[in-house]
Structure formats: C-alpha cells, structure tokens
Nucleic acid binder design. Structure first.
Lengths: 325, 325
DNA sequence: TGTTGTTTTGCATAGCTATGCAATCTTTCA
DNA sequence: TGAAAGATTGCATAGCTATGCAAAACAACA
C-alpha cells in the first residue's frame, strides 16, 4: 500500500534504522490506515531475546508485595521489558511455572519466593537464564539477590527495645522457610544479647505473615501467662494483629503498656488506629538495583552474573513506640 | 540425538499427537539430558494465537485489586493462559501500553480500568482483540464487562441506614471517572429517596479511593459543621480513613454515634480496629465469569463478543453497623 | 502370503520480521 | 559534467516448530 518493500516497513518502525523521513512517513501513514502494528514475535525468534521478564510472586495480599510489584512492573516497562506474571503459592507449582516461562523464552526471572527445588535452579543455570531474588537467600551461578538489611534491622529493633527498658521482649516470626524473616530474628536476638538481655526472657511466637496469625499468637501468649512489654514482628500485618489482640485479649495498650515494631512499612502501618513503627524497605532502591542487575545480566548474556545487594531498611518511628504523630 | 526427525520431537511434546510411546520416550530422554525445552514462539507465529492475555490494572495498593489479580492470574494459568501484566496509572500511558501488548500478539485483554481513549477501543476492535472489563462500564463490539451489582449495593446500603433511623447520611465517593463508584452512589441516592429521606440531608464527600482521602473528607465535614450519623463509602480504604477521622477529629465513635459501610470487603475490613461492614464483591464468581467470557471469545475468534455479567455483592455485616463480632 | 486397514514417521512448508549485502539513488565537490 | 562518497532501498535469508500429506511400517485377517 505504501509502495515500498517489506524491509522498508520494518525499518520504518525501528528508530535506529537507515531510512528516509519521507519513506517512513508513507509507511506509518499506510500502517495507521490499515491498522497494522509490527509483530514482535518473529524478532524474538531471530534475536533469541524476547524482552519479557518472568515475575514470580506469591502473597500479593501483603500490601508490601503489591507495592513492590507495582514499582517493578513500572520500572520494567520503562526499560522496554514486558512482565510475564506468575502467581505461585506453593513450591510445587513453581517448577511447572518456570517451565512455562522458559517455553516463552523469557530473558530473565525476578522472584520474591525462595526458589523451589534444586532441579529448577540447575535447569535455569543450564539455560543461562538470569534470576534476581527479592529478599530470598538462594545463591547460585545465575542468581543474584537484592535484600533489605534484615539482620541490621533486627539489631536496631533490639536496641530500641533495650533503650526503652524492655524486660519481656517478644519475637513474632514469620514462616521458618522465609529467609528474610529468619535473618530479622537473628539480628534481633543478637541485638538483645548485645544489650545484656538474658536469652530466656525472649518469647518467640510463630506466625505465618498474616494478621490472624499475629492475633492468634498473642492470644496463645496470654494462655502462657506472659505479659510482654516489647514486640518485634517480622511483618506489619502480624504486628497489627498483635496490637488488636493485646488490647482485646490482654487489655494492654500500645505504646503505654507495650511497644511494637513491624517490618515493611505497609500503608496500613500509617493508619491511625495502628500508628505502627516499622522498617521501610526502600522499594524504590531495591527495584532500581534489580533493574541494574537485569540490565547487566542481559547485556553480558553468556556470562553468569551472581551479585548480592543489601539495601538498608529505614526505621519509621510512629506511635506504637511512643513517638508523637 | 534421539535419532528421530524434528517432527517427531515436536509430536513428543504434544499430548494429542500421533506418536508411538517408544519414540516419545526416546525423545523425552534425549531432551532431558540436553536440557531442551520446546519453544512456543514459532507456534505463535503459525497459529496466530499466543495464549497470552494482557492484564491491565492500576491501583494495586488497594488490596481488593491485589486479591483479584491473584485469583485472575491463577485462573488464567489453570486454563493454560499466560499473564502479561501491565501496570498503568494514567489513561495516557494506557494507549502505549496496549500498543505494546498488541505487538506481542496477546489473545485478549482483561482490565480493571476504564478504557482510555476511543482510539484504543477502535484499534482493539479493528484488530479483533476481545476485552473484558472488571467494574468498568465501557461498551463496544469486542468489549464485555463483569460488574458487581453496584447499584443494588447502593440500594441495600441506603435501606440499612434508613432502618437504623439515620438522619444525616454521607456518601463518600471515589473519583468521578470511576464508573463503579458512580453506580454505587446512584443506587444509594435512589435508596435514600425511596426511604423518604430528603435529598438535602445527604452530604456528598469526594475522595480518591485512598485512606487519606477518606480521613481528609471527614475533616472537611467537621469544618462544615455537619455531624453525620451514617456513612456509605465507595471503598473500604476510604471507610477506614473515615472511621479514624471521626474518632480523632470529631470524637465520634462507630457504631455508637455513627454507622459506616464500605465496599470491597478487603482483609483490613475484618481487622478488629475497624470491624467494618462491607460489600464483598464475589471475586471468585467474577473471575470465573471472566474466564467464561475469555474462553468463549477465544473459541469464536472472529465474531465480536459483547456480553455483560452482573454479580451480586454480598453484605458482610460487622461491628461498624452495630453487629456483634 | 496377499490384502486391507491402521499407526507411525519424515518431508516440506508456512509463519513474519530483522538484517547483511549489493544495488540504486542522492548529494557533494572538483 | 563527472566522480566519489554517502544515504537509502530491495533482495534474500534465517529463525524453530506445527502440521498436511504421502510414504513407510505395522497389524489383522482371510
């Protein structure tokens, strides 16, 4: 229709191609009237690059991950990469999920999950697909990680409790398979130890990163007859559950009777009913680091990249630790 | 390596293909040892179907959309469809986003946004790409919608307020461009009218679907000197903001002084500090309807499908309207 | 064994674009 | 005007798999 060759059409849509302005104009005009849009699929076959990144996540109901996904998706798009989303709840389906991603020839994988089986890791290495992990500790030849400074935050939390003269601290932990949660707990113990708090004083409560599990954990604590005065929760949702349970089950008010710290600084932490002190994972930084890793890994396509970034979390002090709003 | 033709390899990975068990075994064994995985990209070129669905969303920080996305992604994967995620904040970028999706030859689009410009709609129609809208009212030849019964819920909310003898009702609305919010408001007005409440009694507050906007709206109300006794918020996050503002700015307690209803039934509505009565959009149903629409639209590829499903929302009564927990 | 029917296999092609290379056109300058 | 340099264009090909068709292998039966 534009009276030009197919090559010219291709070049008209490629900004860097050698083509005269007039020809490009003709092509674009014809394309517009025909509703033609270039098809990227053949280019994937030729170049071997799809410009699609597999994003594998779970637990979107945690606002922290929702926000992180939002920012990541935006950043990827700004860098000309598409997001192929994979929602995975259990490690079992992760394997098949990655298989599907691979069959679409994704360029890389970003995940907030602890990568499942070793089979997967080996498969990805064999295929030379770069992986970036968010807050998960898996290491390997093609795997890079971006973590917030979980251990450091644990230390800070412990110091804050010590500074407030806490005698009955509580560590409200997430699932054991959650590496980030484990690291926070280790930092917290370490910090308590450094402050001279006897290990026996620490109550450890197991949760599963949900509000309900935080609530229930405190209810269990009451049955044990423990009256806590300082709590560090591995995540804000559990912290909120704990705040409500303290008030409703134990009649304890925050921060008068007990001070609480959470992690993630989700929007709800700033809601007035909770007013929760929390560690803000600087997601912008973490996403930026992730993009750096992706760019580098995709540029040097055949050399495995394996780097670790640790981004400090920032303590946001609010009412739950006695800070005035 | 397996000593067979390329056709045989292709057939080995296709469950329905005509191939002997022995040959398939040989191929799969060789594939496993070579790390070979079938490449779906050429199949896209041949069949014209990519089995990828563009999912275009905004406002993931609203847990309702996060949950919906989660369920949608799961449902799509169970039906053998991939999710190409597109996060979009403003209608401006929507156009370019859709362009990108189209260039990857997605089979269909699911969106929770009011589709932007007419250009986009026309372009999608021309290309024959089916679109399913979540809670957005756009109509057109290739566009289907799955809505919750917003108007009906508005009626129900009004009836509940009337039943409680409310005299100073408030409608806390979302952005005007949000069709779902508008429909809820219309139902609410209608219901108040039906109950004999004078229109002048209704205060309308404009929010933007965030907690802060709900909080601020109530603060503005105080300045106006209005003392509300019943509030219907277009979304739970605004409702939570309102609850906190009522207590902090006006000294009003819920449900003693004022009763409140929200919409979406986000997890936080069940958190004890809010205990918010809300309308639950039956996301499972809505997602199931969406899948039905997609299946049908993809089966009859060249005939435009344009259907509307309305799914009733369920009133979940909690403490904010005086229900015992 | 010969015949027929069934299953399996390989051949060859299509699908659409990007790009190296050669050919053509345009510009510049002597 | 002619030549050389530069810009633009078209040709032809590659990329990997699914599938129709024909050939081949196999099974069943008389």
């Amino acid at each position: 229709m534009a009276g030009v060759s197919q090559s010219a059409v291709s070049r008209a849509f490629s900004p860097t191609a050698s083509i005269s302005a007039r020809t490009r104009q003709k092509v674009l005009a014809a394309a517009a009237s025909l509703g033609y849009r270039p098809n990227r699929i053949p280019a994937i076959m030729l170049s071997g690059r799809s410009y699609m990144v597999g994003v594998v996540i779970g637990g979107l109901q945690n606002p922290f991950y929702a926000t992180a996904l939002e920012q990541l998706a935006t950043a990827l798009r700004e860098n000309g990469l598409q997001v192929m989303l994979m929602h995975v709840e259990d490690a079992v389906t992760l394997d098949s999920a990655l298989d599907q991603l691979v069959s679409y020839r994704i360029d890389a994988v970003v995940t907030s999950l602890a990568i499942g089986s070793d089979t997967v890791v080996r498969a990805l290495s064999q295929l030379g697909i770069p992986v970036v992990c968010f807050n998960s500790s898996r290491v390997g030849p093609w795997i890079s990680t971006v973590n917030s400074n979980n251990h450091g935050a644990g230390l800070t939390a412990a110091r804050l409790l010590a500074h407030n003269g806490i005698r009955y601290p509580v560590w409200l932990t997430g699932p054991v398979r959650n590496a980030a949660s484990r690291a926070r707990g280790e930092g917290f113990r370490q910090g308590l130890h450094d402050a001279g708090s006897p290990p026996a004083a620490l109550s450890v409560l197991q949760g599963d990163d949900t509000y309900d599990s935080g609530y229930d954990a405190i209810a269990r604590l009451k049955k044990r007859g423990v009256r806590p005065d300082g709590i560090f929760a591995s995540n804000d949702m559990m912290a909120c559950g704990a705040i409500d349970a303290l008030r409703e089950c134990m009649g304890l008010h925050c921060p008068r009777d007990v001070i609480i710290l959470g992690y993630d600084n989700i929007p709800q932490a700033a809601w007035r009913s909770y007013d929760l002190t929390s560690f803000s994972q600087h997601t912008e930084h973490m996403v930026a680091r992730t993009m750096e890793l992706l760019d580098e890994a995709l540029a040097t396509q055949d050399t495995p990249l394996s780097r670790t970034y640790v981004v400090d979390a920032q303590l946001i002090e609010r009412g739950s630790t006695g800070c005035a709003p």
